[in-house]
Write a protein that binds this DNA or RNA. Sequence first.
DNA 1: CTGGCTGCAAATCCTTTGCAAAGCC
DNA 2: GGCTTTGCAAAGGATTTGCAGCCAG
Lengths: 149, 149
Amino acid sequence: MVNEVETYVEVLKGHDLKVTQQRLEILRYLEEHRTHPTADEIYKALIKKYPSLSKTTVYNTLEILCDAGIIDQLTICPTEHRYDFHHQAHHHFFCKQCGKIIDINFPCPNVETIKKDILKNGHQIDDVHGYFKGICSSCIKKREKQDGY
Amino acid sequence: MVNEVETYVEVLKGHDLKVTQQRLEILRYLEEHRTHPTADEIYKALIKKYPSLSKTTVYNTLEILCDAGIIDQLTICPTEHRYDFHHQAHHHFFCKQCGKIIDINFPCPNVETIKKDILKNGHQIDDVHGYFKGICSSCIKKREKQDGY
DNA sequence: CTGGCTGCAAATCCTTTGCAAAGCC
DNA sequence: GGCTTTGCAAAGGATTTGCAGCCAG
């Protein structure tokens, strides 16, 4: 569990990244809001406290944090990128109706076998994503109501 | 193996879709070019033979074919959508350097267990994607040359 | 100091929308 | 003939770029 800003400083330093207020805030936001926010959501949330924050900086920072492997960029949603603090490997479910992303904390040990197969061909693997897409249970219920059940 | 245009007609009819020249051509293109093309690549290739083709039609058709489950939309590439004829389930590797997508024909039987877990929560699963991202072997080689190996 | 970071505005690129004309059954 | 599909142009929206000023190390 990360409780102190000090810890975010260590995270950045540990990856040879310069420590700036903006980076600390974005890191903190991602740690505290594990809702796979978009760049725009992060921007809109932080601009309240830091009126000088630029959306460019949010994009830049997210890219840097991704490259460092500190966070993950999710491409599960077809219209925008979402970001996730890189904690223990897990999968994602995307509801095509409401756009919600649900974490799937069910392990897939088989992934390791596939990774070995890919590595055998000389490729370098940085990220692994298991994406499941469909309609979430609450949207199914809403739909049933509309249909007159 | 699909050899005759007749077969594409059957595919469309089998999904209660109207048969048009444009749809047949897009289907045929996807069947013959299993390179995960973008909408734009499909458009640029077909416009040569069918100068009246509109990009809107390409987008419309791809969406319809996706909804019908005939093709898959890949969101592995962060900047654009790619499309894949829906044949036997397989995974994808994306090279962050050259943008190439490589098919991974290595089964993941464990996926079924995860799907059951998701279904148990009442969600409906339409698509499953295994995305691996990194640097492909040929880009690694290029990089080594540049670095003076 | 000084190279990297930030922020603004404008540009870019993929995709969607509105609507009239054309086509299919 | 009615309803769907097509095609054009314009809009939309996420992300990137160019560049000047600022700041952490």
